Simulated assay, not measured.
Amino acid sequence: MSVPQSETIEAQRSVPETMTGMRLDQVAAELFGEFSRERLKSWINEGALTVDGEPQRPRAKVVGGMQLQLTATLEAREEWLPQAIELDIVFEDEAVLVLNKPAGLVVHPAAGNPDGTLLNALLHHDAQLGTLPRAGIVHRLDKDTSGLMVVAKTLQAHTALVEQLQARSISREYDAVVTGAMISGGTVDAPIGRHPVDRKRQAVVVSGGKPAVTHYRVQERFHAHTHVRCQLETGRTHQIRVHMQHRRFPLIGDPLYGGRLKLPMGGSEALKTLLREFPRQALHARRLAFEHPVDGASMEFHAELPDDMVTLLDTLRADRQARHDEGVS
């Protein structure tokens, strides 16, 4: 296994007009979201992150059109431990890696999950990823959401993919199974921010939230549930889970946003048992499309539904058929 070397980061971001009047450290956290707030604040204080070529204080106010320039050395993080955790790699070349994350795997170490994460697995797969922001991880999936993720393997690829995320040109599509009989699809355009009371949750908020847009369409209807396909324009924390709850169609098995378990009247015992025991939110990142960060080629990947969601849908279909056979609506 090779020893990771430090690398120099050079990146530039333009301040949007909508951020006029905000503090530099707040804007930097939004525009350079691949780095931690602590690291960005340190770079601002060191003069490694400048505004129109000049060093500023973290609390300095910025104006739309200003250019934030970052030039810094990123050292490998010794506290991140490489661990031999199996990865389901869908595609890999010199610049990017696409993988199918299983439910139950945390993406990044944090309080309560210091190791055993996807990041630890990536460092074992390729030690050089230790020099990249968050080991090349440019977007996340919740612990209990399965499906496709793209990881950058070079700083150039990382910068290009982050820019695509910010430009909303990376296409991400999810399968979800929700509680409630949805009549038709639609769009949720509602800002998301920290829940005012429960700090573990996100919520649709009137002020102070970040723009969030989710498009959804019905794939299959059941008696009291719906299989929907969601496409993200933005990538806020828990976005699909929050937006579906906002529309009063929470995801099956969602421990934070699902609310009290609702069992369908007249439903089969098999379905009721499965709904009681379903171990996670029924959400899977099924499709991922982006431009290759080196040659610009269009890349598109698909991941089949995992076994637990296949079983869930099969059980819902069997319940629907039994109702039909018995003449029960």
Rank of each mutant, 00 (worst) to 15 (best):
V51I: 13
P279L: 12
P114A: 07
I252S: 09
I170L: 15
E46S: 15
L40V: 08
I183E: 15
Q239C: 08
A84M: 10
S207N: 06
L122H: 12
T234R: 03
R286N: 05
L87S: 08
T311S: 11
Q5P: 01
P133A: 15
D254S: 12
G296C: 10
A29K: 00
R201H: 01
E277R: 12
G209C: 03
T237C: 04
A84W: 03
V98C: 12
H292I: 02
E173M: 06
V27R: 00
D88T: 13
G112F: 04
T117A: 09
H223P: 00
P306R: 02
G21P: 00
H227V: 03
G296M: 06
G130T: 08
M244R: 06
S268W: 00
A322C: 03
E291P: 01
L105C: 14
T214H: 05
V51Q: 01
R287T: 14
D144S: 07
I9C: 05
P133T: 10
K153I: 10
M19I: 00
M299A: 07
Q281G: 10
Y257P: 13
T18Q: 15
P114G: 06
A318Q: 13
A60K: 03
A289P: 07
R172V: 12
L70G: 04
L68I: 08
L141A: 02
A212H: 06
K153M: 05
P82G: 11
R59V: 02
Q156P: 00
A160Y: 00
D254W: 10
D25R: 02
V178M: 13
V294G: 09
E92A: 14
H302P: 02
A285F: 11
G327Y: 03
L251I: 08
H238Q: 11
E233A: 07
S36F: 00
G193Q: 13
R236W: 07
S6I: 01
F278A: 12
E300F: 02
H125N: 05
V177E: 02
R217G: 14
H139Q: 14
K41V: 07
A95E: 15
D25C: 07
L87Y: 05
E291V: 02
G259M: 13
P114I: 02
E7C: 10
G235S: 11
H195Y: 09
E79I: 00
E277P: 02
V218T: 09
A289H: 06
L271E: 11
V177P: 03
H324L: 14
I170T: 14
E173A: 12
S2M: 09
R168W: 08
R23P: 08
M1Q: 13
A167I: 05
E220I: 08
E34T: 15
H195M: 08
Y174K: 14
D254F: 07
D126E: 14
A303K: 03
F35I: 04
P264H: 07
V15D: 02
F301L: 05
P133S: 12
I192R: 07
H139L: 11
P191V: 03
T18Y: 07
I183F: 05
S146E: 12
L74A: 07
P4R: 05
R236A: 11
I89N: 11
V197D: 09
